[in-house]
């Protein structure tokens, strides 16, 4: 696949079963448009996502990852989203510390009733990542990419 073909970014979304995934359904049934760049993965809770999977998605070629969970206090498992927030804080800090673009990992609280917010966040994030260009993380341990580019 050459670079010209790959205009549309790939964003891997890990969405919690109880809130953000339901919000994605609601956005769909409400006929709200959100970009096809989002590749949703339904997980039982935002805290079930080992932070390494976020890095892993970036290395597999995703331009960004987004982790969606219930609003603080609304977690189906009481405290999962607080743990997820700590994990995201760890991943973002590691990325930033080494000079990677930490905005390619994002954490969002989207409840089951916020179909509107879901569509809006996904649109806005896709635009942002498009402006940001291709992720260098994908080319780690490969022969491709321009290694001088930030």
């Amino acid at each position: 696949m050459n670079k010209e073909e790959k205009q549309e970014p790939v964003i891997v979304g890990f969405f919690c079963n109880w809130c953000t995934s339901a919000a994605a359904d609601l956005a769909g049934t409400s006929r709200l448009h959100y970009p096809s760049s989002i590749r949703p993965i339904r997980v039982m809770c935002s805290s079930t996502v080992d932070p390494v999977y976020l890095l892993r998605a970036l290395q597999e070629g995703a331009d960004a990852t987004i982790l969606g969970g219930c609003h603080p206090g609304d977690c189906h498992y009481i405290s999962g989203n607080f743990k997820a927030r700590r994990r995201v804080a760890i991943v973002k800090t590691v990325l930033k510390s080494l000079g990677f673009d930490d905005t390619r990992v994002r954490l969002e609280w989207i409840s089951a009733s916020e179909g509107q917010k879901f569509a809006q966040v996904m649109n806005e994030y896709t635009d942002y990542i498009k402006r940001r260009g291709q992720s260098e993380f994908k080319y780690i341990d490969s022969l491709g990419g321009d290694s001088n580019e930030q």
């Binding site: 607080f82 743990k83 927030r85 806005e124």
Partner: peptide, 20 residues
């Protein structure tokens, strides 16, 4: 990794541009 607070780390939520 074994603990959390309810009110913390808000700077890691959402999108903060200018990070890098």
């Amino acid at each position: 990794v074994m603990d959390f607070r309810e009110d913390e780390l808000h700077e890691f939520e959402g999108l903060r541009e200018g990070g890098e």
